[in-house]
Amino acid sequence: MNKIMDFLDVKDRKILYELDFNSRQSNSKIGKKVGLHKNVVNYRIKRMEKNGIISNYYTMIDTFKIGYNSLRFYISFQNVTPEKREEIIAYFVNNKYTWWVGSFEGEYDLAVLIWIKDLHDFYGFWEKTLRKYHSYFQKQKFSLYCQLRVFRHSFLMKDDFKKTDRDKYEITGGGKEVKTDELDFKILELLAVNSRIPTIQIAKKTDSSIDTIINRMKRLEKLDVIQGYRVNINYDKLGYHLFKVNVTLNDYSQRGKIINYIRNNPNLIMIDKAIGYYDLELDFLLKNLNHLRIIMDNLTRVFPKEIKNFAFAHDPIYHKMVYMPEI
Rank of each mutant, 00 (worst) to 15 (best):
Glu107Gly: 00
Gly174His: 08
Leu16Tyr: 00
Asn234Lys: 03
Val101Pro: 09
Lys308Arg: 10
Asn95Arg: 15
Arg85Met: 14
Ile307Gly: 01
Gly52Pro: 02
Ile258Trp: 00
Tyr68Glu: 07
Gln25Ser: 11
Asp109Met: 02
Ala90Ile: 06
Trp115Met: 13
Thr206Ser: 05
Arg230Ser: 13
Gln25Tyr: 07
Lys179Phe: 12
Ser253Glu: 06
Met217Thr: 06
Val193Asp: 04
Phe64Asp: 10
Ile271Arg: 03
Gly173Leu: 09
Gln147Thr: 12
Gly228Ala: 08
Leu280Lys: 02
Arg131Lys: 15
Ser23Glu: 07
Leu268His: 03
Leu119Ile: 14
Gly175Thr: 01
Asp224Ala: 05
Val93Gln: 04
Ser28Thr: 10
Ala313Ser: 12
Asn264Glu: 10
Glu86Tyr: 09
Gly239Ala: 05
Lys46Ile: 00
Ile327Ser: 13
Gly67Ile: 08
Ile66Phe: 01
Gly175Leu: 04
Asn95Glu: 15
Asn39Gln: 03
Asn234Leu: 06
Met217Ala: 01
Leu285Glu: 13
Leu282Gly: 03
Ile75Ala: 13
Ile327Asn: 14
Ile258His: 00
Phe142Ile: 08
Gln138Gly: 10
Phe243Cys: 04
Leu183Ile: 13
Arg301His: 15
Lys305Phe: 06
Gln147His: 11
Asn246Cys: 14
Glu189Lys: 10
Asn51Lys: 00
Lys11Arg: 13
Leu299Ala: 01
Ile202Leu: 07
Asp20Asn: 13
Asn56Ile: 01
Asp9Ser: 00
Glu83Val: 11
Asp167Ala: 13
Leu220Asp: 00
Tyr318Glu: 09
Gly124Cys: 10
Asn69Asp: 15
Glu177Phe: 09
Ile271His: 02
Asn264Arg: 05
Phe284Arg: 01
Lys65Glu: 09
Phe7Trp: 12
Lys168His: 09
Phe21Arg: 15
Ser70Gln: 13
Gly124Ile: 10
Gln78Phe: 07
Phe142Arg: 02
Asn79Gly: 05
Asn27Asp: 08
Gly239Ile: 06
Lys132Ala: 10
Leu130Gly: 06
Ile214Trp: 08
Tyr261Thr: 08
Ser26Gln: 04
Asp62Trp: 03
Met321Arg: 12
Lys244Val: 11
Phe303Pro: 00
Asp211Val: 13
Met157Leu: 08
Asn94Ser: 11
Leu183Met: 08
Pro82Met: 06
Lys305Arg: 09
Arg152Gly: 11
Ala111Lys: 09
His291Ser: 11
Thr172Gln: 15
Arg24His: 12
Phe104His: 10
Pro266Tyr: 03
Val178Met: 08
Met48Trp: 01
Ser135Trp: 08
Ile89Arg: 05
Asn95Thr: 14
Asp297Tyr: 05
Ser76Cys: 12
Ser209Leu: 07
Ala203Thr: 08
Tyr235Cys: 10
Leu299Trp: 03
His134Thr: 11
Gly174Phe: 11
Gln140Ser: 14
Leu223Tyr: 08
Val10Gln: 07
Ile262Pro: 02
Ile114Pro: 04
Val193Trp: 01
Ser253Cys: 02
Tyr235Gly: 04
Lys84Met: 14
Asp62Thr: 00
Tyr252Val: 04
Asn250Trp: 00
Val101Leu: 09
Tyr169Asp: 02
Ser154Gly: 06
Arg293Asn: 10
Phe310Ile: 07
Asp62Arg: 00
Lys204Arg: 12
Ile213His: 04
Tyr123Thr: 14
Lys176Pro: 12
Gly228His: 05
Trp126Met: 15
His153Phe: 06
Lys186Asp: 13
Tyr278Phe: 14
Lys204Val: 12
Lys179Ala: 14
